[in-house]
Structure formats: structure tokens, C-alpha cells
């Protein structure tokens, strides 16, 4: 009698994520088309949720009236200055905590105590200190960005393989050389990942800060449109924020591609 013959079935498929460059575009098209259809059919009342074509018209008006530049310019200034300030201070503090025992012992409890405080709650205090103008808004963003940057930098420095540091020491490299040639590049992936988080936090704080005591900026524009029930302009402001977020994310991806080519 012949022995049973069984064809071996492939069972190793799945769990491998491929690159689908077209997928995000299709997702956007589906969402916007569904939204437009729901608006046209009356499922979404125009008063509460404008149709995409109305939002596009509101954006066009913003461009034509010249207000877009003012709002985006003011927001970009606040977010860039605040983020740069908070990030640079956070990098220095995080690096020190990652490298020096004293800085770590002293800094960790302070960071743990202050990190969870919603920084927008400090805005009234910052207005008292710096006035209602730009410095209080920039300081809110800087403060909000500082703590996550400290944490991500500290963790990234801590995660640099100790064998690489030992190797550098064994070849007689001094502390500055080890920090520059081993620790900094080794920590860079974690630091850049932290930038993604801190830039999102900066955007959230930007909008919150712009809703108090200012007439210019995307946050102020959204608040003003909401007060007047101009939902098309309100959503146009939200779209602007989304575009700003995407632009920041694109720039960070570019930085990662350039600086982390070795990965």
C-alpha cells in the first residue's frame, strides 16, 4: 500500500508590514468624499459641520484677504521660538541627567514632580510674570516642550550601549570626545523621537495660549470663528493646524532620514 503523500502548505505568511504609499491618499479621499456626501444629503447640518467645499472656500477667502499670512506668521513665530527655547534647555538638562550622577539624582525628582502639571494651567502665572504679549505665550510653549525633551533626552542618553562608552574609554578618548562622538550620535534616534512628541505638545499649547489675550494666530482665529458660529472658518483653522502638524512631521522625517542614515 502506498504511503500517504501530503503537500506541505505554506503557513509563514502575515505579520510583515509592507509599504503602501497609495493607502493614505485613498484614506483621505474616502474620508473627504464621505464627509461631502453626508453634508450634501443633509446628514451633517451645515450649521454644526460645514461641507468640505465650504471649508475650502473659507480657506480661499483667508488667502485672498491676506489674513492667512498674519495668522500663520504669528503662530509659526510663537511655536518655533517656544519650541526652540524649550528644546535647547531640555536637551542640555536631559544630557546632563543622562551623563552626570549628581544632575540625575537632583533632576529626576524635580522632573517627576513638574512634568505632569498641565502647562497651560501656568499661563495665567506666566502672564503675570511676562505680561499678556508674546513672551507669556512663548514661555508656555517652551515650558511645555522642556519636560518631555528632558525625559526623552535623558532616556536616549541612558540607552546608549555602555560597551561603546567603555570601548571609547579603552582607546583613551576624553569625556568631551566620548560625549560628541559616542553619546550624542548614539542618543540621536531617541532625541529625534522625542522631538515628534514635543512638537505635537507645542502645537497643542500654541492653540491654547492663543485663545487668551490675542487677536492674531490660528488659535485666536479658531476661537473668534467659534464665537461667531462661523463653522466653515473654524474648521478651516483646524485644517491649517493639521497642515502645520503634517509639515512639522515631514521636516522631522527629513531630519531623521538625513541624520540617521546609518540605521
Amino acid at each position: 500500500m502506498a504511503e500517504p503523500r501530503t503537500r506541505i502548505a505554506f503557513r509563514g505568511g502575515g505579520f510583515v508590514l509592507g509599504n503602501r504609499r497609495w493607502a493614505p491618499w485613498i484614506a483621505f479621499v474616502i474620508i473627504i468624499a464621505g464627509w461631502e456626501a453626508a453634508s450634501l444629503s443633509g446628514l451633517l447640518p451645515a450649521l454644526f459641520m460645514p461641507a468640505p467645499h465650504e471649508v475650502i472656500a473659507a480657506l480661499r477667502d483667508l488667502v485672498n484677504s491676506g489674513k492667512l499670512g498674519n495668522h500663520i506668521g504669528a503662530s509659526l513665530y510663537r511655536v518655533l521660538v517656544g519650541w526652540a527655547l524649550g528644546t535647547s534647555c531640555g536637551l542640555v538638562a536631559g544630557f546632563a541627567m543622562g551623563v552626570f550622577s549628581m544632575a540625575r539624582a537632583a533632576g529626576l525628582p524635580v522632573v517627576a514632580a513638574l512634568f505632569p502639571i498641565p502647562k497651560i494651567a501656568l499661563l495665567p502665572l506666566l502672564i503675570l510674570w511676562f505680561g499678556i504679549g508674546e513672551p507669556s505665550k512663548v514661555a508656555t510653549i517652551a515650558l511645555g516642550v522642556f519636560f518631555p525633551t528632558v525625559v526623552s533626552t535623558f532616556s536616549a542618553v541612558d540607552a546608549v550601549p555602555r560597551n561603546l562608552i567603555r570601548m571609547a574609554q579603552s582607546f583613551g578618548l576624553g569625556m568631551p570626545d566620548i560625549l560628541r562622538k559616542v553619546v550624542w550620535p548614539g542618543a540621536l534616534p531617541g532625541i529625534l523621537a522625542g522631538f515628534r512628541i514635543s512638537s505635537s505638545i507645542a502645537l497643542i499649547l500654541l492653540v491654547s495660549a492663543e485663545m487668551i489675550g490675542t487677536q492674531v494666530g490660528i488659535g485666536a482665529f479658531i476661537l473668534g470663528a467659534g464665537n461667531l458660529m462661523q463653522t466653515d472658518q473654524l474648521v478651516a483653522g483646524v485644517v491649517l493646524l493639521s497642515i502645520l502638524g503634517l509639515a512639522i512631521s515631514f521636516l522631522l522625517s527629513l531630519a531623521e532620514k538625513t541624520l540617521l542614515r546609518w540605521r
Binding site: 560597551n163 561603546l164 570601548m167 582607546f171 583613551g172 548614539g186 540617521l260
Partner: peptide
């Protein structure tokens, strides 16, 4: 340049 020099088990190469 470095009288006592190591060769490590895990190579200890800088990946970048």
C-alpha cells in the same frame, strides 16, 4: 598610541 588595547567580544563598533 595606546599601550593597552582591547578587542571586545561584541565588537563594540559605532553603527553610525
Amino acid at each position: 598610541l595606546n599601550p593597552l588595547t582591547f578587542v571586545f567580544q561584541d565588537f563594540a563598533l559605532l553603527p553610525w
